[in-house]
């Protein structure tokens, strides 16, 4: 057969045509791609729509209707965290658009945080925390120095360098103390951030990890569908 085709082409008469469309009907593509956002913040007493909690790719014809679908109405009964599973959204969409092919991509749920009131940061609390950390850090470093006999090590080191025997080698110890702070700042790289590079600092990574763990916990525990117990039906 193939041989025949080649032969026919060689004759200059293509046998296999691409079939011409008989009717120019615009077939509505019913595929909807939906990707849940990781987190979203809403005001209390609002309706959460699909647009708030997900990114959507779909046919332009149904976009506005789809995006304005109500997923959840925030009431005073809700606490400040609501978890919406992607299954709920898909169920909703297939009710409104029967026969639509909904493709879920990405995270399986969205965590909605209801912002009741911008919590005014208490300045006194902040100052107290600051002082707590300050005194705690001072105490721990002193305990550390006592624990490892830093004083006698520094005395010996000073004698080793200069040949002099002194009780308080301040010429060594004061630069040491300044270096202590400098090393910490350098490790967290907050001061020279713009100049050195744009990679996140270990603290920012740790903040992210903590938030990630919190979100994961909430997603598992607030979402009733994700865990099934014996006594549930």
């Amino acid at each position: 057969m193939r041989l025949f085709c080649i032969f026919a082409y060689a004759l200059g008469e293509p046998i296999i045509h691409t079939r011409k469309p008989m009717l120019d009907v615009i077939v509505m593509d019913k595929t909807i791609y939906i990707r849940m956002r990781n987190r979203t913040e809403v005001d209390p007493k609002t309706s959460v729509t699909v647009k708030d909690i997900a990114q959507i790719i779909c046919d332009e014809g149904m976009r506005t209707k789809l995006e304005s679908l109500n997923v959840h109405k925030v009431t005073s009964k809700d606490k400040n965290i609501i978890v919406i599973d992607v299954m709920k959204v898909i169920r909703l969409i297939s009710n409104v658009f029967p026969g639509a092919d909904v493709q879920a991509i990405g995270p399986p749920q969205t965590i909605i945080e209801v912002i009741f009131k911008k919590r005014a940061m208490s300045f006194a609390l902040f100052i107290m925390t600051w002082i707590l950390l300050f005194i705690g850090a001072a105490l721990t470093v002193m305990n550390f120095h006592e624990d490892v006999s830093m004083q006698s090590v520094q005395e010996k080191l000073f004698t080793m360098i200069t040949g002099k025997r002194v009780e308080k080698p301040l010429l060594f110890q004061i630069p040491y103390s300044i270096g202590l702070g400098l090393g910490m700042v350098l490790f967290f790289n907050h001061v020279f951030k713009k100049r050195l590079n744009e990679e996140p600092s270990p603290l920012e990574v740790e903040m992210f990890n903590y938030q990630q763990s919190l979100d994961q916990y909430v997603a598992m525990h607030q979402n009733k569908e994700s865990v099934k117990h014996l006594d549930d039906n």
């Binding site: 002082i131 950390l133 300050f134 005194i135 850090a137 470093v141 002193m142 103390s177 202590l180």
Partner: peptide
């Protein structure tokens, strides 16, 4: 606060 605390404690 931690950084200054360490420097202060050490000094």
């Amino acid at each position: 606060a931690i950084v200054f605390g360490k420097v202060f404690g050490s000094l």
